[in-house]
Design a protein around this nucleic acid. Structure first.
Lengths: 224, 224
DNA sequence: TATAATTATATTGTATACAAAGTACAAAGG
DNA sequence: CCTTTGTACTTTGTATACAATATAATTATA
């Protein structure tokens, strides 16, 4: 068995991937603001690497749509218009409906246990008033549902769409009223999935998404 | 007005983008086969560029899922398993349902005219027995529907999913029976959209997708 | 002969070099 | 005072160089 080496082998990450993750998170967290220029040399100096891994990371961010490239001018963090966000939310709604339908058919007993656990963790973070933990708990909850679809592609797309909204999701989680509502919505989804009741699960998810969409669009509009 | 210069400015494409498009098409057409290694130096020599643009193109193909990277081992064309293809088809079905719903509400008169034209072009290519033209006509037909959703993100994702299936779509278009069926399915979609009849449009698209899915899965299974 | 160790070769990962284009700013001209 | 043009400086695009690792070939050994 070579398992003791496999770990260290998987441990290895090319610098380009480290840079990619770093820049990605920075954009999603809002540390790199929309419209901000990404200059290769200054990023390279800041992260202590050469331009090569920076450029390769930017290529991936470009394809993901987080970065806009203008040839010979450089890269900048993509600006998200209200229309863009709405487009994402529309697609997300459709895919969440698909996901809950599939999850309803395919969810395992173990996944149901995990889901209830995640729901409880979410509740705890709410009491503690820890926004970061709350956001993570919300992600975890939905990740379990996505995983229950047993469809890798759906997983990948939904995760991506969610991340595209990350900057705005934090905002709406700050609202007290929204949060208590979220807990009951999660509970409703849990119960419907447990009963494999597609109709109820579908309605619960739609309500959940609609509320989120509404809250996010509201927070965007007041922001400006 | 500077329009006469704008053209030549947009004409400029970095080599990385040229390489990206070239490799992408080669993979989708099947010229680069699943599992085939992509060696930087040999590709660079073949395309007459240095390794840099090749590497940057590979980063994008990697994010798109067309290429699998194994650190320090290199890139290879992604193998698509039956499960992978099925996952794509499931998601595509969900999004096509969403798309036809949105298109039904939002399609403009001009787009309807284009759609009928595309449908007729498809029919013509069928008579001529020109498979490549047929595939393109099919793409054009669906592109108009996607555009009618007025949702860029949905457009982007659906286009991507469609391209992921490109290698297999050609196969099923070779079947005579499938093709005549496709024409009538396109017609049904056209008519339903024209009447803004969501129910009919939805059913027509579902049938269309299901038939495609069935044909593709069949052609995969017999292939092996 | 089969297997292990060793060397050579090929390939990727990262850094750097140089060319081309873009940007900013100051001097010249109206 | 504004515009233009020239020049120095940034920044990106591409090629190359060197280092680290993986693959292959070869030799040595059981």
């Amino acid at each position: 068995m070579t398992s003791e080496f496999e770990f260290s082998m998987n441990e290895y990450l090319p610098l380009r991937d480290v840079v990619f993750d770093t820049l990605r998170k920075a954009i999603l967290k809002g540390e790199l603001k929309p419209g901000e220029r990404l200059m290769e040399l200054s990023l390279a100096n800041r992260l202590g690497v050469s331009r090569t891994p920076i450029r390769e990371a930017i290529r991936k961010l470009e394809l993901e749509g987080l970065v806009i490239m203008i040839p010979r001018k450089g890269a900048q963090v993509a600006k998200i218009t209200e229309k863009d966000l709405n487009d994402v939310l529309e697609v997300r709604r459709g895919l969440e409906e698909l996901a809950i339908k599939m999850a309803c058919e395919r969810i395992t007993h173990e996944q149901l246990v995990q889901l209830k656990l995640a729901s409880r963790t979410f509740e705890k973070s709410m009491v503690k008033n820890d926004i970061t933990a709350l956001a993570q708990a919300d992600v975890d909850f939905h990740d379990i549902i996505y995983a229950a679809t047993a469809n890798n592609r759906l997983n990948q797309i939904l995760n991506n769409l969610r991340e595209q909204m990350f900057r705005y999701r934090i905002e709406y989680l700050k609202d007290e009223k929204t949060r208590t509502q979220l807990v009951s919505e999660h509970d409703a989804i849990c119960k419907a999935l447990e009963a494999h009741d597609y109709k109820k699960a579908h309605d619960a998810v739609c309500l959940h998404i609609d509320n989120q969409q509404h809250a996010i669009m509201l927070s965007i509009q007041t922001e400006q």
